[in-house]
Design a protein around this nucleic acid. Structure first.
Lengths: 161, 161
DNA sequence: CTACATATTTCATGATGTCAAGTAACCGGG
DNA sequence: CCCGGTTACTTGACATCATGAAATATGTAG
């Protein structure tokens, strides 16, 4: 709570503008993401899953958790990725119920290319000096909470590739 | 990873982390948005359209432009909103081909309630002092480009039709 | 009036999402 | 060993969202 005396200052114009800006960033993020995915004839969901798997093969159930959707949904997405030869299902030696989804060679190549063509990073951030990026990092870290500064996604611990 | 000294520092770790943080913000934004929409038994797309219309009635075509999708898609979304009594189609007196989608009284109420329950603004931003929010606003403005700081949706740059 | 352009809808199709039910496998207690 | 409960994945039915092509109605230029 904040600066003003009002009890519910939900319409503080500065906060509103920041939210608005974040909305713009979110929209742009998606545009770029979908465009990058489209270049490889992938949908957003497929690209997201492939990106996840390129870090580490995962059981279907874990994928569903990361995407916050039902496991039955993942079946279809992996089906389509598998049909295109980008992903394969492997048995988990430790538990025969589990199927591990792992990228194929081609899947890894596509995932890498996807990451590179996703230039959301460079374009808009190039505008900012190193100091400004440091400042932005600090502010975003505080926004998303301390723990999230370490791993945005439980999938991506400190050492992404 | 050869981050150091390379001239094309597309994998500059600082930039990478900022991008990661933005990804987290994007994910959280969506969670909150969908949760807020879900409270009113609306999907994300329906909530977005209703929010748009609550500012101003719009022709179907314009809605499609703002959402960056095909107009035929909007027909279905408006159909569902209309079936729930949240939106109505009105003729455009100036052009009988055009149908204006406008929120009903109840639609306006829901839109307002939606905006309020979307506390993405307050929760994470409450962590930041006014000065920090000013700083964040400045950085985001530069990221998204100057003009985007003025109006919410740059989808309407100049005269379109 | 004719020809073309625009706004919306309809239809077919595919991807994504939910939920409920089914199958296979793990696991604990008898 | 068998039984009952849980877990992992798949399947099916269904709703939403998205695209693209074709149809309809209207506007507009020549």
């Amino acid at each position: 709570m904040a600066t003003t005396s009002s009890r519910t200052q939900r319409t503080d114009p500065l906060t509103l503008e920041v939210v608005e800006l974040i909305g713009t960033v979110v929209a742009r993020y998606h545009e770029e993401y979908d465009a990058a995915a489209g270049k490889h004839a992938l949908t957003g969901a497929q690209a997201r899953v492939l990106g996840l798997l390129s870090l580490e093969p995962l059981p279907m159930r874990r994928i569903a958790q990361k995407l916050k959707c039902e496991p039955s949904n993942i079946t279809g997405i992996i089906d389509r990725l598998e049909a295109r030869g980008l992903v394969e299902r492997r048995p988990d030696p430790a538990d025969r119920r589990v199927k591990l989804a792992a990228p194929t060679e081609e899947g890894l190549t596509v995932a890498r290319s996807l990451r590179e063509s996703l230039n959301f990073a460079r374009e808009p951030l190039a505008e900012l000096s190193r100091e400004e990026r440091l400042s932005l990092r600090g502010l975003l870290r505080r926004m998303v909470g301390e723990d999230a500064g370490l791993l945005a996604d439980p999938a991506t611990p400190a050492g992404y590739d």
